[in-house]
Design a protein around this nucleic acid. Structure first.
Lengths: 144, 144
DNA sequence: ATTGAAAATGAGAATCATTCTCAGGTGGGA
DNA sequence: TCCCACCTGAGAATGATTCTCATTTTCAAT
């Protein structure tokens, strides 16, 4: 599970420097198998190193996204969530009531993307399928 | 194509008042078969009525979304785009270079949503499939 | 090891879409 | 026509993200 080396090699292959801050952010991102938002990541990083600034967290996320190591998701409307790019793609459902996120696989989606690419001559780099509604738990509990 | 009456009836059925501002915004939204952002809609609305405020545009969009008459899309990361809810669902591809948006149908996607709903006991209310990459035109023109 | 130039950082200001506040205006039922 | 709860306009407030800039740090070449 400790694949930090892969991340570090990728960063260096792109000519980016390896700083204390980037190492730490990568470590936290790998440990957290979740969709962290920038603020949460910032808090966890600060728990290890008080001196790291929020701007650095954003800069590093942007850089990791650029080299393909993390994905950014807009699960709600508010702010972004980030997660390590998974080997096999998956998608997300969010409950509008409790905020719970359910991940799911759906191989058909890539076919849709492939067909569209072929038909329109596109080069598709990102595929986001996002569902929202009311989860099973919330349907029982409340009406609103 | 002039289905304003449907919109107006829907609004009234939900107990909302029919104001000059709301009528105008609905009219513009129906005339524009595009994905308008709030600012563009605001400009078009102002061309007809100088006195309308941006906050009213946002308030009305939010209200129309709530009753299901318009959909909100996050095509890029920046800001939202809005369009009249279409009869048959469609999805979007955005070119990261020129910003062009391509709409496409993909009936399979609803099956994915249905299967997930059944399996997890969810009630899915929104389905967004968003692709991005490089369009055919931009692949020829530029490398970057 | 030392050095130097380019790249990265921290702090806080700036940005920008969207929402909120509140005093005044208006739709539509009685 | 009257009334009042709902709407509106203007501008302030918010909140996530980005930018600025002076200071540090990395790392390739000495």
């Amino acid at each position: 599970m400790n694949d930090c080396n892969h991340w570090i090699e990728t960063l260096q292959a792109h000519g980016y420097r390896l700083t204390r801050q980037r190492r730490l952010i990568i470590k936290i991102l790998e440990e957290s198998h979740e969709h962290l938002d920038a603020e949460t990541l910032y808090d966890r990083v600060r728990a290890c190193d008080e001196s790291i600034g929020l701007a650095t967290v954003y800069r590093t996320l942007s850089l990791l996204k650029q080299v393909g190591l993390v994905e950014e998701h807009r699960l709600g409307a508010e702010h972004s969530h980030f997660e390590a790019t998974p080997e096999t793609p998956h998608y997300h459902f969010t409950c509008r009531h409790c905020g719970r996120v359910i991940e799911f696989a759906a191989p058909e989606v890539l076919n849709v993307a492939r067909e569209l690419s072929a038909r329109e001559g596109l080069h598709v780099t990102d595929v986001h399928l996002f569902l929202s509604g009311c989860c099973a738990r919330c349907q029982k509990g409340e009406t609103e």
